[in-house]
Amino acid sequence: MTIEQALGDALDETIHALAILNLDALQAIERRLTTLAQSGPVADGIGGDFILAKKRVLELVLHHSESNLNALRRLYGRNTRDLWEP
């Protein structure tokens, strides 16, 4: 597997894990990419556009996730009191 394939797969998996909020999967991806970075595989230069396109998708997902998280924090902050109290 080339480094481009590994990065592409990791980006796809990251996007999916973020979409379903799967922290365990994100941590596994992080460990795998740390190992990949330490092993120092040689890139063949093919697929750079492919990786950049996936990177842009991930950036969009992260941007929208940040907006959603901020909205949830605001909503949670408003509803912290017990609405059922007499």
Rank of each mutant, 00 (worst) to 15 (best):
N22H: 07
L26K: 05
L11P: 07
A17M: 01
L60V: 14
R56Q: 14
A6V: 08
I51W: 06
G47N: 01
T80H: 14
M1I: 08
V57A: 13
D49W: 04
D12V: 07
E30R: 04
D24Y: 02
D12M: 03
E66C: 10
I51G: 06
E59T: 12
A6F: 03
L23T: 00
L18D: 05
L69A: 10
L52Y: 00
L11E: 05
L11S: 06
D24T: 09
R78C: 11
A10I: 08
N79S: 10
V57E: 13
S67A: 15
L83C: 13
A17N: 03
R81T: 15
A10P: 10
V61M: 08
L23N: 01
H16C: 08
V57W: 03
L75D: 15
H64C: 09
G40V: 11
R32L: 07
D24F: 00
D9I: 05
G8A: 08
G8I: 00
I3M: 04
N79W: 07
P41H: 04
T80E: 14
V57L: 12
S39V: 01
D82V: 13
I46H: 11
R56T: 12
D12K: 03
L21Q: 04
L52I: 02
D82G: 14
E13R: 15
A28V: 12
L18C: 05
D44Q: 03
L21N: 01
R73W: 11
Q27G: 02
D24R: 00
H63L: 06
S67N: 14
S65V: 00
A19S: 14
L75R: 12
L52W: 03
A25Y: 00
D49H: 00
G48D: 01
Q27R: 05
H16L: 13
Q38H: 09
R73F: 13
L58H: 11
R81C: 10
H64F: 09
T80M: 14
D44A: 03
A53V: 13
S65Q: 03
R56L: 12
T34S: 05
R73C: 10
L62T: 00
